[in-house]
Nucleic acid binder design. Structure first.
Length: 113
RNA sequence: UGGGCAGGCCAGACAAUCGCGUGCUUCGGGGGUACCCGGGGCAUGAGGAAAGUCCGGGCUCCGCAGGGCAAGGAUGCCGGAUAACGUCCGGCGUGGGUAACCAUAGGGAAAGUGCAACAGAAACAUUCCGCCGAAACAGGUAACGCUGUGGUAAGGUUGAAAUGGUGAGGUAAGAGCUCACCGGCGUCAUGGAGACAUGGCGGCCGUGUAAACCCCAUCCGGAGCAAGGUCGAAAUGGGCGUAAAAGGCGGCGGCCCGUCGCUGCCCGACAGGUGGACCGCAUGAGCGAGCAGUAAUGUUUCGCCACAGAUAGAUGAUUGUCUAAUACAGAACCCGGCUUACAGACCUACCCGUAAC
RNA sequence: GCGGUCAUGGCGGAAUUGGCAGACGCGCACGGUUCAGGUCCGUGUGGGAGACCAUGGGGGUUCGAAUCCCUUUGACCGCA
């Protein structure tokens, strides 16, 4: 993942939380919004509810890996925030991937190809 | 062979494919020749506690980090180790365990103050019940400790604790009043570096609490890598630098000494430091061997260092084989400890019991 | 990174020089009042048959600890 594709800055986050849309699934919650750029910016988050730092790190890694492996055709020009839910503890990568893809489909961003 | 005790060590391994951080290297593209973008190769990439933040340092800044006083905090048997410590090592005392061994905030209560509820006569010198009637005083009887003053802490009651304990002598009754043994205290001698131990002598002997205030001894300036430094877009728009003496004001997060800064006009032309980038930033009180030391540890001896360095934060996924292995858990400036969490695997020494020889 | 506060029955919240823990209120249960319900009045209300055990957990000091000390868990707050 390239540096510019990492979403950062307090302004960006609060803008997406305020004005963006959200969908939830079994393991992840997705916030998304058009950013007006020609590439996507993505953030993976895990709150303290998920557990200690080892559990939070694992949750973020699983989400990253799932996004990397996904076969869906994700269009450019969006900001995404993937947030782990506390149910993610003990989940396998395949399960997280299914959940993440399901969330993306629900959001309506994915164009059927 | 059953149980126990102390210490050490490891913290899944290997292979394949894909993916990430860092360093080196190489290729392609752009370029203002400072660099920027993209791809490949090689190397390397979390812990014993990285954790809690409970202590101690290094480092940086607070003008210097200097002296004194006060306040506050910490530590507290002895000796040693260390950069330092509240840590560690070796001892001493006390307590526990058959033992190996374990635990131990363990200075001072005759410097002073406070507290000790309830109960009890009394919780610093106290007479409620009790005991005595020897001596002295007063009163009284037919007579008598009969009454008061008096003597007495041996016995009773209460309590966590009652004026050293047990026994004997002694006495009017009693009392370390005297003696024996035991406990404490003081003192002397011997041994030891010391805590202390052993022995002699002295009747010197009301309690607990200092993790109550306190006293004594020793130690501590404050803040923290978001420290601090360099370069500096955009926006803002006026402050900044230099400058003698006295006085005044202020800083040095308590005060004093001491010390530093500011304070008119004038002159000069930039200044400030946000988003961001870079440095700080990984060679360090480092690791291994030898030697010295009972040990902690030290070392002017020898060898080794490619050995994480992110900045919303890099270690993951899938498959296969082995296996008992799915525990606790993620570096954020760096070290030394402490404390707490933890599936299990292995090694060493020792103790008790049982059986056989 | 630095620093601080709190935890007591089902709930809120008392009790501090260290001396009977659960005051007081709410809630709940039972009884009374009513034709019935509410209001109101009364009784009870941590666990346990009892002995005793209970102040987030585990130790310690003390005759005695909710209170003092150490350690730990959780919740919350402040500063940069």
């Amino acid at each position: 993942m390239l540096k510019k594709t990492v979403l950062r800055g307090k302004k960006n986050f609060s803008a997406i939380y305020k004005r963006g849309k959200s969908v939830g699934d079994r393991y992840v919650v997705l916030f998304y919004r058009k950013n007006g750029l020609d590439y996507n910016r993505i953030a993976f988050l895990a709150s303290k509810k998920v557990g200690n730092s080892v559990k939070r790190n694992r949750a973020r890694r699983l989400m990253k890996e799932s996004y990397r492996l996904t076969g869906l055709n994700v269009p450019s020009g969006y900001d995404f925030i993937f947030i782990a839910r506390s149910t993610i503890e003990g989940a396998k990568c395949r399960q997280v991937q299914i959940s993440l893809e399901s969330a993306l489909k629900k959001s309506g961003v994915i164009k059927k190809s």
